[in-house]
């Protein structure tokens, strides 16, 4: 396979390519998922940070 005789080596070569394809496929399917509205806590956090920044 691929000019490599040993199963344990060509399988690693193929798995490297397949895992990259898995990453690409995951990204393609999930591209627009997972967007969140900023939580109350994040908003509060940002406010505190701004205040702190001004104080500094």
């Amino acid at each position: 396979m691929l000019g490599i005789d040993d199963f344990w080596v060509w399988s690693a070569y193929l798995l490297s390519l397949l895992s990259t394809l898995l990453c690409i496929a995951y990204g393609a399917v999930m591209w627009n998922r997972g967007d969140e509205v900023p939580s109350n806590e994040t908003a509060q956090w940002a406010e505190e940070e701004d205040k702190l920044g001004k104080e500094l």
Binding site: S19, T20, C23, I24, Y26, M30, W31, G34, D35, E36
Partner: peptide, 22 residues
């Protein structure tokens, strides 16, 4: 800021590591 950024980072990271280590 959200899961969407992590989802989008997965293919970029995968291709990058293949191009480096591979």
């Amino acid at each position: 800021k959200s899961q969407r950024e992590i989802n989008r980072a997965v293919p970029v990271g995968g291709i990058f590591i293949l191009a480096m280590i591979g």
